[in-house]
Design a protein around this nucleic acid. Structure first.
Length: 260
DNA sequence: GGTCGCCTGGTA
DNA sequence: TACCAGGCGACC
């Protein structure tokens, strides 16, 4: 489930595999992806050279030599497969970029919830995205400014990419557990002290994610502190972890040591 | 603000 | 065979 740390890894892969390379062939292999990357954009991409790749929130941004930007979103199940143009096409390949040097990068996405979009030169890419959680512009004060206008619970607010960029369902739950804040707490009523704890917890969760192998399918789950642990004892106080639905999504939390 | 549905593989 | 996973846009 790609959240910020996984997308950062993806952006690095894309950069290593594509920066400085000229695109020979673009193939779009799924109707959902054809919607976000129509034939006209495939034509525009073909023959262009990828200059650099950056990440913003959960979005990967490949800048092309004409200033246009290819934006990739992994959705739930997106991942890169790096190889050569002679490789067999992956079962879940949705977009394939073949470069003139014979190398290839494939966007595989089993559930096809991701997207690829081409932004024209000079376009404002991702205008509604909130601050990067690991940047100084994200702070207890800035978070307070945004949350003040919110009516709903803090968990739902944290999943809003306009509040903070890059958090998903898992790390939002993990951060709230670390900060000892109930996911049901009203976003607008969080004290400055709790916002400080939350900002710290978000950074902590995101920073340690790669090292903790959060993303490893076999070993990841056992490292989660609260996510997917419904009915199991809280790692802090032993209380049974609760599962509730917020914004049509599962939320896991400790009803005792995460207070509203 | 809340809820639904896109998608499809994995699991009960 | 039904249901669940979830990022996110579309809807009420």
């Amino acid at each position: 489930m790609p959240e910020l740390p996984e997308v950062e890894k993806g952006a690095r892969m894309l950069r290593a595999a594509s920066a400085g390379r000229r695109i020979a062939v673009v193939r779009v292999l799924h109707p959902v992806y054809a919607r976000s990357l129509p034939a006209a954009d495939v034509d525009r991409l073909t023959g262009r050279t990828i200059v650099d790749v950056t990440r913003r929130g959960k979005h990967q941004l490949a800048t092309l030599d004409d200033g246009s930007v290819l934006e990739i979103h992994f959705g739930m199940t997106g991942e890169w497969i790096v190889g050569s143009a002679s490789d067999p096409v992956d079962r879940f390949a949705r977009v394939i970029l073949d470069f003139i040097d014979g190398s290839r990068i494939t966007l595989a996405d089993s559930r096809a919830l991701g997207a690829a979009r081409l932004h024209q030169p000079g376009a404002d890419v991702l205008p509604d995205l909130g601050p990067e959680p690991l940047s100084p512009s994200f702070s207890a004060d800035s978070l307070g400014d945004v949350l003040r206008r919110r009516r709903g619970p803090i968990k739902v607010a944290l999943l809003d990419q306009g509040v903070v960029a890059g958090l998903g369902n898992i790390y939002a739950a993990e951060a709230l557990w670390l900060a000892r804040i109930s996911p049901r707490a009203r976003a607008s009523s969080l004290s400055a002290a709790r916002r400080t704890r939350l900002v710290r917890a978000i950074r902590d969760v995101l920073r340690r994610a790669p090292a903790a192998r959060y993303t490893d399918r076999e070993n990841g789950a056992q490292h989660w502190r609260v996510y997917d642990r419904a009915g199991k004892p809280c790692r802090r106080c032993g209380t049974r972890i609760a599962r509730i639905i917020q914004g049509a999504r599962s939320t896991y939390y400790c009803p005792k040591c995460q207070r509203a």
